[in-house]
Amino acid sequence: MSIDNRPLPGYYSIISGGTAGVTELLIMYPLDTVKTRMQLKGGATAAGANNGVFSILSNIVKTEGPLRLYKGLLSPIFLEMPKRAIKFSATDEFRKIYGEKLNWGPSPKLQVISGISAGVLESFLVTPFELVKIKLQDPNSAFKGPKDVISSILKSKGIIGMATGLEATMWRQSVWNAGYFGSISHIKSLLPQVSPEEKGKTLFNNFIAGTIGGTIGSTMNIPFDVVKSRIQLSGQGGSALSEIFKIAQKEGVKTLFSGWTPKILRLGPGGGVLLVVFDQMMGMFRDIHYKKI
């Protein structure tokens, strides 16, 4: 995704993607807590689930303490490095595969299909960590930490219980990737073109493209995010699509966009942070790698 497109070994994109993911997570995680509370069925009344984002943030800090905003952080911290590594490196690898096997040149279609493929792959890793995080973010949760959650799931449902919400997670990850990677190149083409030497302007373009891409991806996938959160909290539910129709019929379409504001506030700018950090890391590695050569 950098202007300099000289190829690099895959491990560079793994390190760059992981670093980008952890950076974004540490900056934006409190908004993820608010988003989850808005989405969970029954409403986080103690957190002011029906109020605005900043009202909920303030209420959590006042009633539960600021550390509550980071409850469940340990699980995604362990997840973020491999998850983002898969997201970026697998998307790059699928681009190469589809480009060579199907003779597809650079295009939105290539970006979308590659992103979807990477999303399906990363879901197998993401699901157990998301399950633990959701259980801990529930305001009614009595769990003390990730170990407590995992022990409870294994006792009640066995190892298969750790895959609760897998199908919904596949939809969520794939749709986000399709919107994000599928839009970035087009958005960049609409921005003022800059040379590789104009690093400040390149960073700005990347941040704008990543932010818009993150907003598009988050808006497209939020119904699946809502369904995933509910399935993982309750441990029950049918297919993601059937649950979406069920929620729409019983609670209205608006419910499928619960938590949209904090999600956009996180993953809009968060998408910008991801792209900027990833591109900067890859640029640094490219300089190091080719200087060595």
Rank of each mutant, 00 (worst) to 15 (best):
E24L: 12
L26Y: 14
I27P: 04
M28P: 03
P30A: 08
D32K: 08
D32Q: 15
K35D: 05
T36K: 08
T36L: 09
T36V: 14
T36M: 14
T36E: 06
T36I: 15
R37D: 04
M38E: 05
M38P: 00
Q39Y: 02
L40M: 08
K41N: 06
K41G: 01
K41W: 03
G42A: 12
G43D: 13
G43P: 12
G43M: 14
T45W: 08
T45K: 11
T45S: 15
T45M: 14
A46E: 11
A46Y: 08
A49M: 00
N50R: 08
G52I: 01
V53I: 05
F54H: 04
F54D: 07
S55D: 09
S55V: 11
S58M: 09
S58G: 13
N59V: 04
N59I: 06
I60N: 02
I60C: 04
V61D: 04
K62G: 05
K62H: 10
K62S: 11
T63S: 09
T63M: 01
E64F: 04
E64W: 05
G65R: 02
G65Q: 07
L67V: 10
L67G: 10
L67D: 09
R68K: 12
R68A: 11
L69T: 07
L69V: 11
K71T: 14
K71R: 15
L73C: 08
L73T: 11
L73N: 04
L74C: 13
L74K: 12
